[in-house]
Simulated assay, not measured.
Amino acid sequence: MNRRRFFQRSGLAAIVALAGGITARSAMAGNRYYSGPVSDHFDGTTFFNPGGVEPRGGLDLLRWKLGNGNIPWPDTFASPFPQAVPETRVDGERIVVTMIGHASMLVQVAGLNILTDPVWSERTSPFSFAGPKRVNPPGIRLEDLPAIDIVLVTHNHYDHMDLQTLKVLHGRDRPHFITPLGNDTIIRSGVPEARITVMDWGGSEKVSADVTFHCEPCHHWSARGLGDRRMALWAAFVFETPAGKIYHIGDTGFHEGRNYRAAGEKHGPFRLANLPFGAYEPRWFMEAQHQNPEEAVKGMELCGAAFAAGHHWGTVKLTNEGVEQPVEALYAALDARGILRERFRPMRPGEVFEVPASRPA
Protein backbone atom coordinates (compact mmCIF):
# COMPACT_ATOMS: atom_id res chain seq x y z
CA MET A 1 0.00 0.00 0.00
CA ASN A 2 1.50 3.37 -0.92
CA ARG A 3 1.84 6.12 1.68
CA ARG A 4 -0.96 8.31 0.33
CA ARG A 5 -3.45 5.42 0.29
CA PHE A 6 -2.43 4.37 3.79
CA PHE A 7 -3.04 7.90 5.06
CA GLN A 8 -6.40 8.07 3.27
CA ARG A 9 -7.62 4.77 4.65
CA SER A 10 -6.29 5.09 8.17
CA GLY A 11 -7.12 8.75 8.70
CA LEU A 12 -3.68 9.29 10.19
CA ALA A 13 -3.07 12.37 8.06
CA ALA A 14 -5.62 14.37 9.99
CA ILE A 15 -5.54 12.37 13.21
CA VAL A 16 -1.88 13.31 13.67
CA ALA A 17 -2.92 16.95 13.53
CA LEU A 18 -5.96 16.32 15.71
CA ALA A 19 -3.82 14.49 18.23
CA GLY A 20 -1.22 17.23 18.24
CA GLY A 21 1.56 15.60 16.28
CA ILE A 22 4.30 13.35 17.57
CA THR A 23 6.64 16.04 18.80
CA ALA A 24 8.32 16.18 22.18
CA ARG A 25 8.19 19.36 24.27
CA SER A 26 11.95 19.71 23.82
CA ALA A 27 11.43 20.20 20.07
CA MET A 28 9.30 23.29 20.62
CA ALA A 29 11.17 26.53 20.04
CA GLY A 30 8.96 29.05 21.80
CA ASN A 31 5.31 29.76 21.18
CA ARG A 32 4.52 30.79 17.62
CA TYR A 33 0.99 32.02 18.42
CA TYR A 34 1.01 33.73 21.81
CA SER A 35 3.30 35.61 24.17
CA GLY A 36 2.08 36.57 27.62
CA PRO A 37 2.58 36.28 31.37
CA VAL A 38 2.72 32.97 33.21
CA SER A 39 -0.63 32.01 34.79
CA ASP A 40 -2.33 29.06 36.44
CA HIS A 41 -2.88 27.58 32.94
CA PHE A 42 0.08 28.97 30.94
CA ASP A 43 3.71 28.13 31.74
CA GLY A 44 5.25 30.78 29.50
CA THR A 45 5.36 28.53 26.44
CA THR A 46 2.33 26.25 26.45
CA PHE A 47 -1.17 26.15 27.93
CA PHE A 48 -2.35 23.36 30.20
CA ASN A 49 -5.34 22.17 32.22
CA PRO A 50 -4.78 22.86 35.94
CA GLY A 51 -4.90 19.55 37.78
CA GLY A 52 -5.71 17.87 34.49
CA VAL A 53 -4.32 15.27 32.10
CA GLU A 54 -2.02 15.97 29.16
CA PRO A 55 -2.96 14.58 25.72
CA ARG A 56 -1.37 11.28 24.82
CA GLY A 57 1.63 11.08 22.51
CA GLY A 58 2.57 9.45 19.24
CA LEU A 59 3.12 5.89 20.42
CA ASP A 60 -0.33 5.81 22.00
CA LEU A 61 -1.78 7.29 18.82
CA LEU A 62 -0.28 4.47 16.76
CA ARG A 63 -1.40 1.87 19.29
CA TRP A 64 -4.95 3.16 18.93
CA LYS A 65 -4.99 3.49 15.14
CA LEU A 66 -3.37 0.11 14.54
CA GLY A 67 -5.47 -1.70 17.13
CA ASN A 68 -8.92 -3.27 17.04
CA GLY A 69 -12.32 -1.90 17.99
CA ASN A 70 -13.01 0.49 15.15
CA ILE A 71 -16.61 0.36 13.88
CA PRO A 72 -16.86 1.56 10.25
CA TRP A 73 -19.28 4.31 9.31
CA PRO A 74 -21.42 4.33 6.20
CA ASP A 75 -20.27 6.53 3.34
CA THR A 76 -23.39 8.66 3.86
CA PHE A 77 -25.49 9.27 6.96
CA ALA A 78 -28.35 11.39 5.74
CA SER A 79 -30.15 13.68 8.12
CA PRO A 80 -33.93 13.27 8.38
CA PHE A 81 -34.18 17.07 8.26
CA PRO A 82 -33.94 19.11 5.04
CA GLN A 83 -31.37 21.87 4.83
CA ALA A 84 -32.77 24.75 6.87
CA VAL A 85 -33.47 28.30 5.79
CA PRO A 86 -33.21 30.20 9.09
CA GLU A 87 -35.12 33.30 10.09
CA THR A 88 -33.34 36.59 9.53
CA ARG A 89 -33.38 37.50 13.25
CA VAL A 90 -34.76 36.12 16.51
CA ASP A 91 -35.75 38.53 19.28
CA GLY A 92 -37.58 38.69 22.60
CA GLU A 93 -37.50 35.61 24.80
CA ARG A 94 -36.72 33.23 21.96
CA ILE A 95 -33.57 31.12 21.54
CA VAL A 96 -33.32 29.14 18.30
CA VAL A 97 -30.49 26.71 17.48
CA THR A 98 -30.03 25.28 13.99
CA MET A 99 -27.60 22.43 13.50
CA ILE A 100 -25.07 22.69 10.67
CA GLY A 101 -22.97 19.64 11.52
CA HIS A 102 -20.45 18.35 14.04
CA ALA A 103 -19.73 21.39 16.28
CA SER A 104 -21.06 24.00 13.84
CA MET A 105 -24.31 25.56 15.05
CA LEU A 106 -26.26 28.73 14.37
CA VAL A 107 -27.50 30.24 17.63
CA GLN A 108 -30.06 33.03 17.23
CA VAL A 109 -30.86 35.09 20.31
CA ALA A 110 -31.42 38.73 21.27
CA GLY A 111 -31.28 39.87 17.64
CA LEU A 112 -27.83 38.32 17.10
CA ASN A 113 -26.81 35.55 14.72
CA ILE A 114 -23.96 33.54 16.26
CA LEU A 115 -22.02 30.77 14.52
CA THR A 116 -20.01 28.29 16.59
CA ASP A 117 -16.90 26.61 15.15
CA PRO A 118 -18.15 26.95 11.56
CA VAL A 119 -16.96 24.27 9.12
CA TRP A 120 -18.39 24.01 5.61
CA SER A 121 -15.38 22.22 4.10
CA GLU A 122 -15.67 18.61 2.97
CA ARG A 123 -12.84 17.43 5.24
CA THR A 124 -11.75 18.39 8.75
CA SER A 125 -8.09 18.06 7.91
CA PRO A 126 -4.98 20.00 6.91
CA PHE A 127 -5.15 18.09 3.60
CA SER A 128 -7.69 18.21 0.80
CA PHE A 129 -7.05 14.59 -0.21
CA ALA A 130 -7.15 12.82 3.18
CA GLY A 131 -8.56 12.92 6.66
CA PRO A 132 -12.06 12.82 8.14
CA LYS A 133 -14.67 13.48 5.47
CA ARG A 134 -18.21 14.59 6.23
CA VAL A 135 -20.95 12.00 5.62
CA ASN A 136 -23.74 14.55 5.29
CA PRO A 137 -23.93 18.05 3.84
CA PRO A 138 -24.10 21.14 6.07
CA GLY A 139 -27.54 21.65 7.61
CA ILE A 140 -27.64 25.18 6.17
CA ARG A 141 -26.28 26.15 2.78
CA LEU A 142 -23.87 29.07 3.00
CA GLU A 143 -26.09 31.09 0.70
CA ASP A 144 -29.05 30.56 3.05
CA LEU A 145 -27.26 31.81 6.15
CA PRO A 146 -28.63 35.06 7.59
CA ALA A 147 -26.13 37.84 8.13
CA ILE A 148 -23.69 36.62 10.79
CA ASP A 149 -22.77 38.94 13.65
CA ILE A 150 -20.54 36.73 15.83
CA VAL A 151 -18.28 33.82 14.92
CA LEU A 152 -17.12 31.87 17.95
CA VAL A 153 -14.03 29.65 17.52
CA THR A 154 -13.45 27.57 20.65
CA HIS A 155 -10.03 26.15 19.70
CA ASN A 156 -7.81 25.38 16.75
CA HIS A 157 -8.37 21.69 15.90
CA TYR A 158 -9.38 21.25 12.27
CA ASP A 159 -12.88 20.05 13.08
CA HIS A 160 -13.47 23.37 14.86
CA MET A 161 -11.32 25.93 13.04
CA ASP A 162 -11.73 25.88 9.26
CA LEU A 163 -9.83 28.83 7.79
CA GLN A 164 -11.47 28.52 4.39
CA THR A 165 -14.93 28.86 5.93
CA LEU A 166 -13.80 31.76 8.12
CA LYS A 167 -12.44 33.52 5.06
CA VAL A 168 -15.76 33.13 3.24
CA LEU A 169 -17.74 34.38 6.23
CA HIS A 170 -15.47 37.39 6.61
CA GLY A 171 -15.84 38.30 2.96
CA ARG A 172 -19.60 37.93 3.17
CA ASP A 173 -20.54 39.53 6.51
CA ARG A 174 -17.46 40.99 8.23
CA PRO A 175 -18.48 39.28 11.51
CA HIS A 176 -16.91 39.80 14.93
CA PHE A 177 -14.67 36.80 15.72
CA ILE A 178 -14.30 35.71 19.35
CA THR A 179 -11.67 33.15 20.29
CA PRO A 180 -9.25 32.19 23.11
CA LEU A 181 -5.64 33.36 23.38
CA GLY A 182 -3.36 32.59 20.46
CA ASN A 183 -6.03 31.54 18.01
CA ASP A 184 -6.19 35.05 16.59
CA THR A 185 -2.72 34.54 15.12
CA ILE A 186 -3.93 31.48 13.21
CA ILE A 187 -7.15 33.14 12.06
CA ARG A 188 -5.24 36.18 10.79
CA SER A 189 -3.00 33.89 8.74
CA GLY A 190 -6.06 33.19 6.59
CA VAL A 191 -8.16 36.28 7.27
CA PRO A 192 -5.70 39.16 7.82
CA GLU A 193 -8.35 41.88 8.21
CA ALA A 194 -10.62 39.99 10.58
CA ARG A 195 -12.04 41.82 13.59
CA ILE A 196 -11.09 39.56 16.50
CA THR A 197 -11.63 39.70 20.23
CA VAL A 198 -9.16 37.42 22.03
CA MET A 199 -10.07 36.18 25.49
CA ASP A 200 -8.42 34.38 28.37
CA TRP A 201 -10.30 32.18 30.81
CA GLY A 202 -12.28 34.46 33.10
CA GLY A 203 -12.51 37.24 30.52
CA SER A 204 -15.67 38.83 29.18
CA GLU A 205 -16.74 40.92 26.20
CA LYS A 206 -19.92 42.95 25.80
CA VAL A 207 -20.98 42.41 22.18
CA SER A 208 -24.24 44.40 22.22
CA ALA A 209 -26.27 46.52 24.63
CA ASP A 210 -27.62 43.46 26.41
CA VAL A 211 -25.41 40.49 25.43
CA THR A 212 -22.07 39.60 27.03
CA PHE A 213 -19.74 36.69 26.23
CA HIS A 214 -17.77 35.10 29.08
CA CYS A 215 -14.75 32.86 28.45
CA GLU A 216 -14.46 29.86 30.80
CA PRO A 217 -12.24 26.77 31.20
CA CYS A 218 -12.81 23.38 29.64
CA HIS A 219 -10.52 20.33 29.72
CA HIS A 220 -9.04 20.03 26.26
CA TRP A 221 -5.94 21.08 24.29
CA SER A 222 -4.89 22.37 20.87
CA ALA A 223 -2.67 21.76 17.84
CA ARG A 224 -2.69 22.37 14.09
CA GLY A 225 0.22 20.07 13.26
CA LEU A 226 3.70 19.09 14.34
CA GLY A 227 5.39 21.22 16.97
CA ASP A 228 2.55 23.52 18.09
CA ARG A 229 0.84 21.39 20.71
CA ARG A 230 -0.98 23.55 23.33
CA MET A 231 0.40 26.84 21.96
CA ALA A 232 -3.11 28.31 21.64
CA LEU A 233 -5.77 28.21 24.35
CA TRP A 234 -9.08 26.30 24.27
CA ALA A 235 -12.22 27.45 26.06
CA ALA A 236 -15.92 27.17 26.76
CA PHE A 237 -18.16 30.24 26.58
CA VAL A 238 -21.22 31.61 28.34
CA PHE A 239 -23.60 33.85 26.41
CA GLU A 240 -25.39 36.14 28.85
CA THR A 241 -28.57 37.33 27.09
CA PRO A 242 -31.96 38.80 28.04
CA ALA A 243 -33.54 35.49 26.93
CA GLY A 244 -31.41 33.51 29.39
CA LYS A 245 -27.87 32.19 29.68
CA ILE A 246 -26.34 29.76 27.20
CA TYR A 247 -23.33 27.58 28.05
CA HIS A 248 -21.39 26.51 24.97
CA ILE A 249 -18.62 23.90 24.93
CA GLY A 250 -16.91 22.95 21.67
CA ASP A 251 -14.85 20.06 23.08
CA THR A 252 -14.03 18.84 26.56
CA GLY A 253 -13.07 15.93 28.73
CA PHE A 254 -15.28 15.53 31.78
CA HIS A 255 -12.43 16.19 34.25
CA GLU A 256 -14.47 14.93 37.23
CA GLY A 257 -17.10 17.57 36.44
CA ARG A 258 -14.93 20.37 37.86
CA ASN A 259 -15.55 22.88 35.08
CA TYR A 260 -19.27 22.13 34.98
CA ARG A 261 -19.58 22.77 38.71
CA ALA A 262 -17.57 25.98 38.44
CA ALA A 263 -19.64 27.28 35.52
CA GLY A 264 -22.87 26.48 37.32
CA GLU A 265 -21.73 28.25 40.49
CA LYS A 266 -20.46 31.30 38.61
CA HIS A 267 -23.08 31.73 35.89
CA GLY A 268 -25.89 29.19 36.31
CA PRO A 269 -28.53 28.16 35.97
CA PHE A 270 -28.58 27.95 32.18
CA ARG A 271 -31.54 27.89 29.88
CA LEU A 272 -29.45 25.99 27.33
CA ALA A 273 -26.15 24.14 27.21
CA ASN A 274 -24.58 23.17 23.87
CA LEU A 275 -22.63 20.05 24.77
CA PRO A 276 -20.41 17.61 22.82
CA PHE A 277 -21.24 13.94 23.34
CA GLY A 278 -19.50 12.07 20.50
CA ALA A 279 -15.98 11.03 19.41
CA TYR A 280 -15.15 9.26 22.67
CA GLU A 281 -13.85 5.73 21.93
CA PRO A 282 -11.51 4.16 22.88
CA ARG A 283 -11.82 5.59 26.38
CA TRP A 284 -8.20 4.89 27.33
CA PHE A 285 -7.14 7.35 24.60
CA MET A 286 -10.06 9.79 24.46
CA GLU A 287 -11.23 10.17 28.07
CA ALA A 288 -9.15 13.26 28.85
CA GLN A 289 -10.20 15.17 25.74
CA HIS A 290 -13.72 14.01 24.76
CA GLN A 291 -16.52 13.26 27.22
CA ASN A 292 -18.88 10.39 26.48
CA PRO A 293 -22.71 10.63 26.48
CA GLU A 294 -23.06 9.60 30.13
CA GLU A 295 -20.60 12.30 31.16
CA ALA A 296 -22.37 14.87 29.00
CA VAL A 297 -25.63 14.11 30.83
CA LYS A 298 -23.89 14.47 34.18
CA GLY A 299 -22.43 17.77 32.98
CA MET A 300 -25.87 19.07 32.05
CA GLU A 301 -27.03 18.33 35.58
CA LEU A 302 -23.94 19.75 37.28
CA CYS A 303 -24.11 23.10 35.49
CA GLY A 304 -27.86 23.43 36.01
CA ALA A 305 -28.96 23.48 32.36
CA ALA A 306 -32.68 23.19 31.65
CA PHE A 307 -32.02 21.92 28.12
CA ALA A 308 -29.05 20.72 26.09
CA ALA A 309 -28.34 20.73 22.37
CA GLY A 310 -26.00 17.82 21.69
CA HIS A 311 -23.32 18.10 19.01
CA HIS A 312 -19.94 16.65 17.93
CA TRP A 313 -21.35 13.43 16.47
CA GLY A 314 -22.62 11.94 13.21
CA THR A 315 -20.89 14.21 10.66
CA VAL A 316 -17.18 13.28 10.55
CA LYS A 317 -15.67 10.07 11.88
CA LEU A 318 -12.86 10.84 14.31
CA THR A 319 -12.89 7.87 16.67
CA ASN A 320 -13.92 4.22 17.03
CA GLU A 321 -17.61 4.25 17.91
CA GLY A 322 -20.32 3.58 15.33
CA VAL A 323 -22.20 6.49 13.81
CA GLU A 324 -25.40 5.99 15.85
CA GLN A 325 -23.85 4.72 19.08
CA PRO A 326 -23.63 8.17 20.73
CA VAL A 327 -27.39 8.67 20.51
CA GLU A 328 -28.12 5.18 21.82
CA ALA A 329 -25.76 5.78 24.75
CA LEU A 330 -27.21 9.25 25.35
CA TYR A 331 -30.77 7.95 25.64
CA ALA A 332 -29.61 5.15 27.94
CA ALA A 333 -27.87 7.68 30.20
CA LEU A 334 -30.91 9.98 30.29
CA ASP A 335 -33.25 7.09 31.06
CA ALA A 336 -30.95 5.77 33.81
CA ARG A 337 -30.97 9.17 35.52
CA GLY A 338 -34.70 9.74 35.09
CA ILE A 339 -34.24 12.74 32.77
CA LEU A 340 -36.76 13.39 30.02
CA ARG A 341 -35.20 12.67 26.63
CA GLU A 342 -36.51 15.92 25.18
CA ARG A 343 -34.28 17.86 27.59
CA PHE A 344 -31.08 16.71 25.80
CA ARG A 345 -31.54 16.88 22.04
CA PRO A 346 -28.98 15.06 19.83
CA MET A 347 -28.97 17.54 16.95
CA ARG A 348 -28.91 16.45 13.30
CA PRO A 349 -27.94 18.68 10.35
CA GLY A 350 -30.83 20.93 9.38
CA GLU A 351 -32.64 20.41 12.69
CA VAL A 352 -34.11 23.54 14.29
CA PHE A 353 -34.46 23.63 18.08
CA GLU A 354 -36.74 26.30 19.50
CA VAL A 355 -35.59 26.18 23.11
CA PRO A 356 -38.52 26.14 25.55
CA ALA A 357 -38.81 29.19 27.79
CA SER A 358 -39.43 27.23 30.98
CA ARG A 359 -37.68 24.34 32.66
CA PRO A 360 -39.71 21.09 32.55
CA ALA A 361 -41.28 19.95 35.81
Rank of each mutant, 00 (worst) to 15 (best):
F6T: 06
A17E: 05
G20K: 08
A27C: 11
R32V: 06
Y34A: 11
V38N: 08
D40L: 09
T45L: 11
F48Y: 13
F48Q: 01
N49G: 03
E54W: 03
W64I: 03
K65Y: 13
K65F: 11
P72G: 05
S79A: 04
P80W: 03
V85Q: 15
V85T: 15
E87G: 11
D91A: 14
E93D: 14
I95D: 02
T98N: 04
H102D: 13
M105T: 12
L112Q: 12
S121I: 01
R123P: 03
S128A: 15
A130E: 09
G131Q: 05
P132S: 12
V135F: 07
V135T: 12
I140C: 01
R141V: 02
E143Y: 04
D149I: 04
V153A: 07
Y158I: 00
D159W: 00
H160P: 00
H160V: 07
M161R: 10
T165F: 12
R174F: 08
T179A: 14
P180C: 09
G190R: 14
V191Q: 06
R195T: 14
T197G: 11
W201F: 09
K206H: 09
T212G: 01
F213L: 15
E240C: 07
I246S: 08
G253W: 05
R258M: 05
R261C: 09
G264H: 11
K266A: 15
G268F: 05
P269N: 11
E281K: 15
P282D: 01
E287W: 10
P293T: 05
K298C: 10
E301C: 06
C303P: 13
A305P: 09
F307M: 05
W313D: 00
G314L: 03
N320D: 14
E324I: 11
P326A: 00
L330T: 10
L330E: 05
L330R: 09
A333P: 02
L340N: 08
R341V: 05
R343H: 04
E354F: 00
E354Q: 05
V355M: 02
V355Y: 03
